[in-house]
Simulated scan of single mutants.
Amino acid sequence: MSNEALKETVIAQSQIITALIAAVRKKDALDLTLFTDLIEQMRVPHKEDETGKNKTYNQVIETAKSACLIRDQQP
C-alpha cells in the first residue's frame, strides 16, 4: 500500500467513525440516513481525480456505507 493510499484510508476511517458517533448520539441508535448524509458531506472535498487520488478513500467509504445497508436489511 502506498503512503497516499494509507493516508486516504486513515482519513476515511476517521470520518466514518466521526459520522457513526454523530449518527448514534442524535437518537441513541444508529440513524443510517443521518450517517449517509454526514459521510456524503465529509466526502465532498475528497472526490477522485484523474490521477487516482482519493480512489482508496472512496473505496473505504463505499465499503462502510454498504456494510451499514446490509446491517439495516437484516431481520
Score class of each variant (00 low, 15 high):
Met1Lys: 11
Ser2Cys: 12
Asn3Gly: 11
Asn3Ala: 14
Asn3Ile: 12
Asn3Cys: 00
Asn3Met: 12
Glu4Ile: 03
Glu4Lys: 04
Leu6Pro: 00
Leu6Phe: 14
Lys7Val: 12
Lys7Phe: 13
Lys7Arg: 14
Lys7Ile: 13
Glu8Tyr: 02
Thr9Val: 10
Val10His: 10
Val10Leu: 12
Ile11Asp: 03
Ile11Ser: 06
Ile11Arg: 08
Ala12Glu: 01
Ala12Phe: 06
Ala12Pro: 00
Gln13Asn: 15
Gln13Met: 15
Gln13Gly: 15
Ser14Gly: 13
Ser14Val: 05
Ile16Arg: 06
Ile16Ala: 02
Ile16His: 00
Ile17Phe: 12
Ile17Leu: 14
Ala19Asp: 07
Leu20His: 06
Leu20Gln: 01
Leu20Cys: 03
Ile21His: 09
Ile21Ala: 05
Ile21Phe: 04
Ile21Val: 12
Ala23Ile: 04
Val24Gln: 05
Lys26Thr: 11
Lys26Tyr: 11
Lys26Glu: 11
Lys27Asp: 01
Lys27Gln: 08
Ala29Glu: 04
Ala29Ser: 06
Ala29His: 04
Leu30Gly: 08
Leu30Asn: 08
Asp31Gly: 07
Leu32Phe: 06
Leu32Glu: 01
Leu32Cys: 02
Leu32Trp: 07
Thr33Leu: 15
Leu34Trp: 10
Leu34Phe: 08
Phe35Gln: 01
Phe35Val: 00
Thr36Gly: 00
Thr36Trp: 04
Asp37Ser: 10
Asp37Pro: 03
Leu38Gln: 08
Leu38Val: 07
Leu38Phe: 04
Ile39Ala: 07
Ile39Lys: 00
Ile39Thr: 05
Gln41Arg: 01
Gln41Met: 07
Gln41Thr: 05
Met42Lys: 05
Met42Ser: 01
Met42Asn: 05
Met42Trp: 08
Arg43Gly: 01
Arg43Lys: 03
Arg43Ile: 07
Val44Gln: 04
Pro45Leu: 11
His46Ser: 08
His46Glu: 08
His46Leu: 03
Lys47Glu: 12
Lys47Thr: 14
Glu48Asn: 12
Glu48Met: 15
Glu48Trp: 00
Gly52Tyr: 07
Gly52Cys: 02
Gly52Trp: 05
Gly52Glu: 05
Gly52Lys: 06
Lys53Val: 10
Lys53Phe: 01
Asn54Ala: 00
Lys55Gly: 02
Thr56Arg: 00
Tyr57Asp: 02
Tyr57Val: 08
Gln59Ser: 05
Gln59Val: 04
Val60Glu: 09
Ile61Arg: 03
Ile61Gly: 02
Ile61Met: 00
Ile61Ala: 07
Glu62Asp: 15
Thr63His: 15
Thr63Phe: 15
Thr63Cys: 13
Lys65Pro: 07
Ser66Gln: 13
Ser66Cys: 11
Ala67Pro: 06
Ala67Gln: 11
Ala67Arg: 10
Cys68Lys: 05
Leu69Met: 14
Leu69Glu: 13
Leu69Tyr: 13
Arg71Thr: 06
Arg71Leu: 11
Asp72Leu: 13
Asp72Tyr: 11
Asp72Met: 12
Gln73Val: 12
Gln73Tyr: 13
Gln74Arg: 15
Pro75Thr: 10
Pro75Ile: 10
